[in-house]
Computed example of a mutant assay.
Amino acid sequence: MQASPTADTATPALPPLPPLAVQAERLVELGVHRLAGVSADEVRGFAARAAGAAGADGAGEGEGGGDGGALLAVHPDRVPASALVPLLDRGGKPGFVVTDMADIDDFAPCGIELPEGPGPLYLVGAPDRGDDLANWSPQEALPELAGRGRSPMLLSEGVHWVLQQPAALERNRCFMTIGSRLRKANGTFDARTPALWISNGTGRDGRERRGAPKAGWCWWNNRHTWLGFASTTGRTA
């Protein structure tokens, strides 16, 4: 299969993720721990242990060393995407799910085994927006990511990423999360693939939502010049 055209790869680098301790406080501030059914101290404790295991006690945090490349996430079976998306914020406008994706929580990990630990928290390694894959279709991008040794990000992971690093979502540089797919009753996959982008306030979104973060979908075989493919190096508990 011939690869589709790529977008301009000379894109500005995203700022580093906050240290895990800061990410933990962010989740507590948003009340994600309550949604997951754990205490704030459990979230903080997991982050502290993970940072220690990564040798992140001091220099290097948030700069590519230590825990700087790790994203703190909650298993989607404990906090579904529908509960996370409204926590997104851009310019004072909360995130929302498009009206024709009422089944958003039925999009589950596809070909991805999430790590099992004593609780619902885990780490997502080195998130990347996949800007260089803009204008590829999901069908084309999936094997390309595998060839790079990367795993496509889940929708819930993508939302966690934007919660911690809002700059990951910007106009004309948004992303799909094709690690989540919906399997139909007959065993085939729904042709929709989830994505995160910014609303233009048109159609059923409503003008009042212009500029708001948005969880929606794109077709499996379609290309979009403004959508990359979020991925990770792996997941650990």
Rank of each mutant, 00 (worst) to 15 (best):
Ala51Cys: 14
Gly91Pro: 11
Ile104Met: 15
Asp100Val: 06
Phe107Gly: 07
Leu114Phe: 10
His75Tyr: 07
Val85Trp: 05
Ala73Ser: 12
Ser82Pro: 00
Ala47Val: 03
Asp106Tyr: 13
Ala59Gly: 04
Leu87Val: 09
Pro118Gln: 00
Gly66Phe: 07
Asp41Gln: 10
Val79Thr: 11
Val98Arg: 13
Ala47Gly: 04
Phe96Tyr: 00
Ala70Tyr: 09
His75Glu: 04
Gly95Leu: 05
Gly117Pro: 10
Pro118Val: 04
Gly64Lys: 15
Asp105Trp: 00
Ile104Glu: 12
Ala70His: 11
Ala51Glu: 11
Pro94His: 15
Asp41Glu: 15
Glu116Asn: 13
Gly45Trp: 00
Val85Tyr: 03
Asp106Phe: 11
Gly58Ala: 02
Pro80Gly: 14
Ser39His: 11
Leu71Cys: 07
Met101Tyr: 13
Gly91Arg: 12
Pro80Asn: 14
Ala50Arg: 15
Ala54Pro: 01
Pro115Ser: 13
Asp67Gln: 00
Phe107Met: 09
Ala108Lys: 15
Gly69Arg: 13
Asp57Arg: 13
Asp103Lys: 05
Pro109Cys: 10
Phe96Asn: 00
Val97Trp: 03
Gly91Gln: 14
Asp89Val: 00
Pro86Asn: 14
Ala83Trp: 08
Pro115Thr: 10
Phe107Arg: 02
Asp89Ile: 02
Ala47Cys: 06
Asp105Ala: 03
Ala50Val: 11
